[in-house]
Design a protein around this nucleic acid. Structure first.
Ligand SMILES: [Mn+2]
Ligand SMILES: [Mn+2]
Ligand SMILES: [Mn+2]
Ligand SMILES: [Mn+2]
Lengths: 223, 223
DNA sequence: AAAATAATTTAGGATAGACTAAATTTTACG
DNA sequence: CGTAAAATTTAGTCTATCCTAAATTATTTT
């Protein structure tokens, strides 16, 4: 058992690099900077430090972007597991709504113990998804596979159910909640406009027109 | 409403200064240093900074020790309220034992929101004491009065019930738990030794001999 | 009241993390 | 392919917090 001394700042870097590299491509300095609300220059400095750690937490070549090493990925999944378990638990035991949990979990994720983590996981029945439908990394820090695809990629007549909503913005989340666009809900695409990428969908008895700012954040499991 | 930018370090200073000054006397630089596991020189620097804040968080005169201002006391009670509510809640909802909660609460106390605070307070039914029997500051940040006195100040034939145990050391707390020395338990002093300040007490059917390291940490409400 | 002891302060560094401005490298495209 | 734009890196600062060693001030004892 290794005891890593990842600071909160490092944990945040790793978490965001994980998310930026999920698609396979390395993360650019600029992208990381935007995610973390710091300047690109700061990212370069930190990334060079992470690459110099033993074991290295990121792979880094000048101008080639950043990837996670196995050690970095594990550390990232640890933080993500904390975050998503915390969100789930805030909703289920303290009555938070899905738009209120992100901020709180963002601070708590860095300070809870492994003991706390396993106690809430057990108390919740080892959930596999958080309140937004996002997958919770397993106890042994593997991310389960997810086959959902963005709503924006569906075309008229395609149907599916909402698997997850990849958003943290509270206003957006409240808006989606009001529209009934939450996990497990069935949707059917009835119209697509190639000009603005708007989709018209049917949810229950309602018909909604959604822009791509929304449709790229809703992920669908097709039946 | 003022938004203070108290860092975790500052919050810890204020919390410990609060505890050191509860008796009315100012806290010495050395005492604060011992409590916080930093060097006296570091305390001087921080204390001068806290005294220079607007509004000042501490009163400070060279060689005269440190006191809390109204603003500093409020900030300290805020942290203490967080700590004790968290401990209570860890015990009651996650099955922690009283010797396991301190460390966890120590980290969480600095990062929970006011919203989180009031949610757990409500969920617990606005408790007035934590698992160690310590008073929880009220929502408006007043510390309720407590009339308990240390067990060490009792003499043979005096009786009372344990009100609170002022200790964080996990080993000691486990030991006390095994001896049945927990809040609400009745005790009777049967013997006092002026040589070593040992007290012999009766708890239920058992007789125990306790040194002053223990008896000064157990506080009794006399009947 | 002086000397011994204890408490306190100052000065000078260290580390972590972020910033700005300037320099450099890569990529994009006319 | 050569320049303009974009991305990246470097260099030099800054703030917060802690440290050690040395100097100073207060308190306690004789
Ligand atoms: Mn964990
Ligand atoms: Mn989530
Ligand atoms: Mn509070
Ligand atoms: Mn307590």
């Amino acid at each position: 058992m290794k005891k890593a001394i990842a600071t909160q700042s490092i944990q945040n870097y790793l978490k965001h690099i994980y998310e930026l590299t999920e698609g396979g491509q390395p993360a650019s300095t600029t992208d990381i900077a935007r995610e973390l609300n710091v300047k690109p220059a700061s990212v370069t400095g930190m990334v060079q430090k992470l690459a110099a750690e033993k074991p290295a937490l990121v792979g880094y070549q000048k101008h080639q972007g950043v990837t996670l090493t196995a050690a970095g990925k594990k550390a990232a999944l640890e933080v993500i597991r904390h975050h998503r378990l915390l969100e789930t638990w805030l909703v289920q035991t303290l009555g938070y709504s899905w738009d209120e949990v992100h901020e709180e979990a963002e601070r708590l994720e860095h300070v809870i113990s492994e003991d706390f983590e396993s106690r809430i996981a057990a108390a919740l029945g080892n959930p596999t998804r958080d309140p937004h439908g996002e997958l919770i990394p397993t106890e042994d820090l593997k991310m389960p596979p997810d086959k959902s695809i963005p709503l924006s990629s569906l075309r008229p007549n395609q149907t599916g159910i909402i698997q997850r909503v990849n958003a943290q913005n509270a206003d957006l989340l409240r808006h989606l909640d009001e529209l009934g666009l939450v996990p497990k809900v069935c949707v059917e695409v009835v119209e697509y406009s190639s000009f603005d990428n708007n989709l018209t969908i049917k949810v229950g008895s309602k018909s909604l027109v959604l822009g791509s700012n929304i449709t790229t954040k809703i992920f669908i499991k097709c039946g």
